[in-house]
């Protein structure tokens, strides 16, 4: 029995620019700017959906590699997981052509837009882990999220993190605020949430195989 082999890319979406819709809303609360760590790992807007991200990757591959490149990856490309709160995504590609998709991600400079009128937001897609199974990618995501929370606490102090997440909640909506508080409080609630979400998907994966 021959198995179709895949690679799972764990991607962080980073925001290197200070000017954006979030920066405006937070500037009123504290005078001191947030530490760079928190600025770069900002939550993504809720409009960013897995379908939108997949389409953006397809477009980028088409731009860089043409019809041939798109044909090679289009059957296997799938955005398995996308969390706007942590700006993390897991993308599945076939093992032979994962470098194509990785290259396309490296050349992306802004977030996909839900409509033509929406403002462009500059971002950097950083691939932090390539693994053969979704389980390892998921473990790495949880590990990194935990580490990021600890580092943010250490660098910015408890107060500033709460203020930042609270400010975002007011802007983004109730759901995000709830998540933000969970992440700021214990650090475990958010992680469990992620694991639940992805377990279901990994079961899908095994069924498919």
């Amino acid at each position: 029995m021959v198995r179709i082999k895949h690679r799972y890319l764990l991607v962080h979406i980073l925001y290197p620019e200070t000017t954006g819709p979030n920066a405006k809303s937070t500037s009123s609360a504290p005078a001191k700017p947030f530490p760079h760590l928190i600025q770069f790992h900002r939550p993504s807007p809720n409009e960013l959906t897995p379908q939108l991200l997949a389409r953006a990757i397809r477009d980028q591959v088409l731009l860089l590699y043409g019809d041939y490149g798109l044909a090679l990856i289009s059957s296997s490309l799938n955005v398995k997981y996308l969390s706007p709160a942590t700006s993390t995504a897991i993308i599945r590609v076939s093992r032979d052509h994962f470098r194509l998709v990785w290259g396309a991600l490296s050349y992306m400079t802004d977030l996909p837009k839900p409509s033509k009128l929406a403002p462009t937001r500059a971002c950097v897609m950083q691939v932090v882990r390539v693994s053969g199974t979704i389980k390892k990618a998921e473990e790495e995501a949880v590990r990194r999220a935990r580490g990021a929370i600890l580092r943010a606490r250490r660098e910015g102090g408890e107060g500033s993190l709460d203020g930042f997440l609270g400010g975002l909640g007011g802007l983004g909506g109730d759901e995000e605020a709830g998540r933000g508080e969970g992440a700021g409080g214990t650090g475990d609630i958010g992680d469990e949430d992620e694991e639940d979400g992805m377990d279901g998907e990994s079961e899908d994966e095994t069924n498919e195989l």
Binding site: P16, R99, G103, S106, V124, V127, V128
Partner: peptide
Amino acid sequence: KALACRGPADVINMAVL
């Protein structure tokens, strides 16, 4: 600009391409 920077792993992948 900070936007043009890429992580070490991404740069290695680019070099492979």
